[in-house]
Design a protein around this nucleic acid. Structure first.
Lengths: 333, 333
DNA sequence: ACCACTCTTGCACGGCTTTGCAAACTTCTT
DNA sequence: AAGAAGTTTGCAAAGCCGTGCAAGAGTGGT
């Protein structure tokens, strides 16, 4: 390997006939430098292929420009869409995203935060799993911003972004009732994430208020395959449900496929289905799934805005709305 | 903000009653240090919440541990799966992934590589777009490894990973012929990426060898919606095709949905469809799409292996196989 | 011609780590 | 008990950049 390695500010300075500090200033917005000097520096830099070393800059400024995204299941439509939005917005804000994949083992979330600390990330955004309290404290103590998305727990310090699912259950139950459904079911995974569990609990509660019982089934990870299994379980019951609320779109799509292809049911005639997330596939013609739309852009905007703002300590908990999206998987009145 | 900020090796050294270099060695694998000393250091570090500053370490070692992923359309199933595999494997190799989102504007790929240089990334992996030749040279000259995935062009220096699609066209044409199809079509996007165009050209060529003509249609970006439009265009032709090879699974799925729901065609009875990528959705019951499987894990493994190896300069161009996956969207003999 | 100002620029230090080198310490041999 | 051989440790330099400070350059007024 031709270990010439990178060009340093020193060399640029020599070539431009100025001091090294001049080079530094040329690349610092708002620094006191004559336009002419800056031009000379930029020219020399361009010629040599110089690029400011952000590692060193981060060292000095105590601000690396790195934001760490902690995430699992990133092959999933919802997760990948969120990552996309976040990286985009971070870049617009002049930051850069570092990704830590925490697939399998929750303990890896802690490793991820450690990694973020090592690289002196300005902030971390946790999309999956649940970091240990002590780690969260460590981050905060180190002046690192922390955003927890859809992990509603009771940590202090970080910004917590959650969905306001107050009306969710109400909307679904109302829709099912209006469609004439009476035998309700909830299809959940076994992940047990707080937000997923809250969805189940809320739905069951509202249904009960209306005097309806809900059959709850839980199985496997939160994905398409689990949806199929859940359909097999629910549709072979004595009292076959005529409406099912699936914890997630992926689950709902698996459910629909099994209901149609294995049980020859028509949707929405024989069965009404509602999902959650509004992933692109939910809108595909084969499914046309009624669901709730995750406000992905808003989440990303809020997260980035918060971690760019100077005044920490302001509103620490944010609730966003997931609008109901009417499609054809539920009979209309 | 409580600007205590991060703990430094200095403080750990003081607390452990050793020198600063001892702390450094304690955190360096294979360094010459007494077990007892290391224990003392680790204890003090744990107590203070010390973490090695990778920015400074990278500065010294001339090896940041960062690998930059340059990608657009990361919300897409294929891309996100690839990112997932890459981040995973990079982590296993002790590296960390930095993501640069290059959605819209190809010029952004250059910005991305610049960003990679600024952070002194050990390597960059380009999944989308086409970097400018001068930038590639700059990276290589700076000792940065570069991997180009599915961007078959003629750059020198970087590792190029491409699919061997020699047999692809042959397989598809054979399958269509065996299914009794005679009016072939190719549904392409307007993206014009080399690998996508190669697919089209290869298919047309092989079909022609067999004495069959291919209707080629191109439209929009490479996605589900374009597939629908392409179906509308191809299916309203005088000579309606009875078999279509879609440049991508997403296009194929859109095509299928439009064919079924807008033209009431049955697949595979009235129309045979083949896609490319084998995204999870292709296996969903509603589609059951015959396609080619992108060897995602192999790609990731090869990329990471190459950028970890000491001897650069070895095999610079790699061709992997995308196995044919038989499903139900093509009639069997 | 001189002074008061403002704008630029260079010096030198600081931020945090790694590592070559030589000194200090162990351990063991003879 | 002294010396050889091997380990461990601290010192100091190096890696690259940002910035306070003070000196220098330029401007304009009188």
């Amino acid at each position: 390997m031709s270990d010439k390695i990178f060009v340093s500010a020193e060399e640029v300075a020599r070539k431009a006939g100025v001091s090294r500090s001049a080079v530094s200033r040329a690349f610092t917005a708002g620094a006191s430098i004559a336009p002419e000097t800056r031009r000379k520096v930029m020219e020399a830099a361009e010629a040599l292929g110089y690029h400011v070393n952000h590692l060193a800059r981060g060292l000095m400024r105590n601000e690396s420009g790195i934001v760490c995204l902690v995430v699992s299941d990133m092959g999933t439509p919802y997760r990948s869409a969120l990552i996309k939005a976040l990286t985009q917005q971070l870049q617009n804000a002049g930051k850069i995203a570092m990704i830590v994949n925490t697939d399998r083992s929750d303990e890896r979330v802690d490793m991820a935060l450690r990694q973020a600390i090592r690289y002196r990330a300005d902030a971390s955004i946790v999309l999956s799993g649940m970091p240990d309290k002590s780690l969260v404290d460590l981050c905060v103590r180190n002046g690192q911003r922390l955003v927890l998305i859809n992990r509603d727990d009771e940590h202090q310090g970080p910004l917590r972004i959650n969905l306001d699912e107050e009306d969710t259950a109400q909307s679904v139950v109302t829709a099912f009732l209006r469609a004439g459904c009476r035998r309700l079911a909830f299809a959940n995974s076994e992940a047990g994430t707080p937000s997923l569990m809250a969805r189940e609990v809320g739905f069951v509660a509202v249904a009960r208020e209306q005097g309806l019982d809900v059959t709850v089934e839980r199985f496997g990870p939160t994905g398409y395959e689990s949806g199929k299994v859940l359909a097999q379980r629910l549709m072979t019951r004595r009292e076959r449900p005529d409406a099912v609320f699936c914890v997630t779109d992926l689950v709902a799509l698996g459910f629909m496929d099994a209901a149609r292809h294995q049980f020859s049911l028509s949707i929405p005639q024989d069965l009404c289905v509602v999902g959650f997330d509004d992933i692109p596939q939910a809108a595909w013609n084969s499914y046309d799934l009624t669901t709730f739309s995750q406000p992905i852009e808003e989440i990303a905007t809020a997260a980035v805005a918060w971690l760019m703002s100077d005044d920490v300590g302001q509103s620490q908990s944010l609730r966003l709305n997931a609008p109901f999206v009417w499609r054809r998987s539920v009979r209309s009145a």
